[in-house]
Simulated scan of single mutants.
Amino acid sequence: MRALRRTVALAGATALVALVASASPATAATNDTLRSKQWGLTQVRAEQAWSTSRGAGAVIAVVDTGVDLTHPDLAAKLVPGGTFVGCSGSASCGDGNWKGVDGVGQDVDAHGTHVAGIAAAITNNETGVAGVAPDARIMPVKVLEDGSGNTADIANGIRWSADHGADVINLSLGSLPGTQVLSIAGLDTEIEQAIDYARTKGALSVIAAGNTSTIACTSPGFSSTGLCVGSTDKNELHSAFSELPIKPDLKVVSAPGGFGFGGCDDDVWSTVPTGAASGCGVGGYDAFAGTSMATPHVAGVAALLLAQGRTVAQAEKALTTTARTPVLGMRGTFTPLYGYGVVDAQAAVASAR
C-alpha cells in the first residue's frame, strides 16, 4: 500500500428543501409523474434523441455508493453489480447494494441511487422520473461508504466494471483540489490506470469536475483519459459551485447539475432509496445539486451513442463536437466556463460517425 493515497469523496449531492416553486415546468413527453420537474432532461434534449437511439444494449456502471436494488424505478434495469468497500481483499464481496456489507444505509449513500436514476431510470412507467438513456441497463458498483473511500477500492470497482461488460463508467466522485499533483507526480495513479484499462476494454469513463469552484477539474477528472463534466443550472449558466471544466487534454463538457442555493425544482430530481428521508418530501425521490448530477446526464448520452455501435473515441468526438455553448450559440468550441459546451443528445446521435 502506498504511503500517499487520496481520500476520494462524492462530487457533491446536496438535498435542498423547496421554499418556492421557482422552476419552469419542462415539457413532459413521457408520463413519469416527476417529468415536468426534470429541466435537465430537457436541457440535454434527450427525448429528441430517442427516435434514433434509446441506449438498448448499453450498460452504465454507476461506480459510487451503491444503488437501492429494489427501487421500483430502477430494479428492472439492473444487471449484476459488485461491492468493493468493506471487503477483506480486492475482489467483490457484495452485489452493489447501497447498504453495503454491514447492511446499514447512511443517508449520504443515497447518492448512487440518485445518480443511477438520472442516467437510466425506467421511463414512461407512470412513476417518478425518466432516464436520459431509457433502454440502457445499470450496473451498481459500491466503492464508497458513508460518502467516501480510497483509490484502491475505486480502481478495483472500475476494473471489475470493465471486465463485466460496462460500456460507460460513471464516476460522480473526486478528490480535494490540489491533489492533482499526486497523480501528476506519479505518486497515486491507481484510478487513472484503471480508467485507462477500462478504455482498452471499450468503456468510456465520465467523471465529475468537482464542487469547490476552482479553476480546473479535480482528480481523477483532471489527470485521466476520461471525460470531465462541469455543471449548469436550469438557465444554462455555469453553476457557481462547479469547478471550471478544464483539464490538460481539454476533454471536457457541461451538463445539468443544478443551482445549489434555491428550491428543490432548481436542482435535479431523481431516485433515492425507498424509505430514505427526502428533503423535498416525495418518497423515493429527491432533488440534489452537484457535478455528481451533471455527470450521469453525460453518461446517459454516451450510452445512446455507444448503443449505436460507436467506439469510445467516436462517442467522445460526438459529445464534444455537438455540445453547444449557451448564449453564444457555438458548437464544439472550447470555453473556460463550459468546456466544449452543454451536451446535446439530439445532435450527438445524429452526428456522423
Rank of each mutant, 00 (worst) to 15 (best):
D73G: 11
S90I: 02
A133L: 10
G103E: 08
G86E: 05
L41A: 01
P134C: 13
K247D: 01
V63E: 03
K77E: 07
T70M: 03
D267Q: 10
S90P: 00
T179P: 00
D249C: 01
A352I: 14
V129F: 02
A13N: 15
A216T: 05
L237W: 02
F261Y: 13
K251E: 07
N97P: 00
T200L: 09
Q314H: 05
P256N: 04
Q308V: 09
V132K: 01
D163W: 04
E126Y: 05
V63F: 06
R159G: 01
P25M: 09
A133V: 13
G332N: 10
P220R: 08
S88F: 00
G66W: 12
T7R: 13
T27C: 06
K317Q: 14
M139R: 06
D233P: 00
L204W: 04
A13Y: 02
D265Q: 11
A209W: 00
R6T: 05
A21D: 15
V342Y: 06
A18W: 00
T232E: 10
N31F: 07
A255C: 09
E316N: 12
A58F: 07
V282P: 03
D233R: 06
C93A: 09
A198D: 08
A318G: 06
K37M: 09
V79A: 03
C93Y: 01
G263I: 04
T271C: 14
S231V: 08
Y340W: 12
I154P: 11
V44S: 01
S213Y: 10
C280T: 05
V104M: 06
A315K: 08
S223V: 04
A120V: 13
V143T: 13
A56K: 14
Q48K: 13
L187C: 01
A121S: 14
A21R: 15
V282L: 08
T151H: 00
A194N: 06
S51W: 03
V349H: 07
V343G: 10
A75F: 04
A152I: 13
A352C: 04
T123N: 04
S51I: 04
A56T: 12
G260W: 12
R331A: 15
V79L: 08
G275C: 09
V101I: 14
A348H: 14
W98V: 12
I246P: 00
P256L: 08
T212Y: 14
A287Y: 02
S224H: 02
L16C: 05
D196A: 12
R45K: 15
V282M: 03
C93L: 05
F259Y: 14
A91I: 04
Q180F: 05
L250F: 06
C217Q: 00
G230K: 01
P273S: 07
G82Q: 03
G96C: 04
V181P: 00
A9M: 08
L328V: 03
A61G: 10
V272N: 04
V20E: 14
S53L: 14
L328M: 11
G258M: 11
Q43E: 13
T271W: 02
H71L: 10
V115E: 11
A289I: 02
S278H: 07
R35Y: 10
G12V: 12
G284T: 09
V143K: 01
L319C: 06
D167C: 06
P220C: 14
A352L: 09
E126G: 13
S278R: 10
T320D: 02
G128K: 02
